[in-house]
Amino acid sequence: MKALMSVGALVGVIGLLLLVGMIFDVVPANTVRLVEGYMPMQMLTELTFFVAGFAGLSYMLSSMGMPLPRFWQGVGFWAFILLYLKYRVYPPIPFSVRAMYGTVSLVAVFMWVSSNEEDWKKFKQPILNVLDAQSGGNKMLRYAYLFLLPILIGGFTYNAMKPKSEEPIELRTVHPAPPASTKVHGKTYVLQTSQNPYRVNPEGKYDQEFTNANIVEQGMGRLMKPNANPWDEKNTGYLKYVREGGEIFFQNCHFCHGDNLNGRGLHAFAFNPIPANFTDPGTIAQLQETFIFWRVSKGGIGLPNEGFPWASVMPPWEQHLTVDEIWKVILFEYWHTGYYPRTWD
């Protein structure tokens, strides 16, 4: 038990030192890199490590005869959460959201310290001691608070009132409602009934099961199935069209959506918000192929009013591509990300 707790304590101390080092720029902020795509998991893991570390730390301290008072545990943990959210999480969370998380964790901390009468008393004790000021030290502290608190709060107010130019926050609909049908190159496509003409089996029949069996494998790296290489010369049907779609993608789309379809293309850094990440399970994996067909054909300009604030420079690709090319690109996008398009049933 003790050994386990010491390990926990060690993890906690190292973690804290790293975090503090990063905050004060002593340790480069990328010492433990946040890897895109795994960030939420990584953060949960990190937090688990921290909590385990703190538990170990507090156990070690109390077994060494210098237990940390409940009051400081509570305050310390809350401060840790706030610092972690501000300095570790990337991309940065806006203040309003951080304030919300801060409040929730404050409530949680209160629940923790007041879980029984005994604990709550212990938690309150240092506060009451200062208020009563029975000893010299506490008296000093009381006077210090008396002066510092107004100055501090006044300072915060001043800071808050100083004219600032922070970027206005924008929220937008990620998947606006599509129209019932869309007209591309003079032909009307009903979104509910249209099908990707290239999603076909070797017999040339529309076959979602067959094509889904030939997409890249989910899992690290998202690699193609060993026997389903679109660059195989002998291909007919689906995989041949995937390759043709890929060629179009890498001549038109990768500039923004990236070589790995993750929205990190050559020009992506210049745009706000950055282009859609197709490997994210929240984008094309959630949508029907016809929805993509509509979005690709009509671009940011074709977004309905709910697409507000229309922060998309995606061109209406019907300007540059034929209907066949658009369908092939869509085929490629699903192949390359390893997602199945959603179906209507």
Partner: peptide
């Protein structure tokens, strides 16, 4: 001007609260 006035008012309020 308010930027300079309000913080003082609020600080005074905190003193009263204390």
């Amino acid at each position: 001007k308010e930027t300079y006035i309000y913080p003082v008012v609020i600080a005074f309020g905190v003193v009263l609260l204390e």
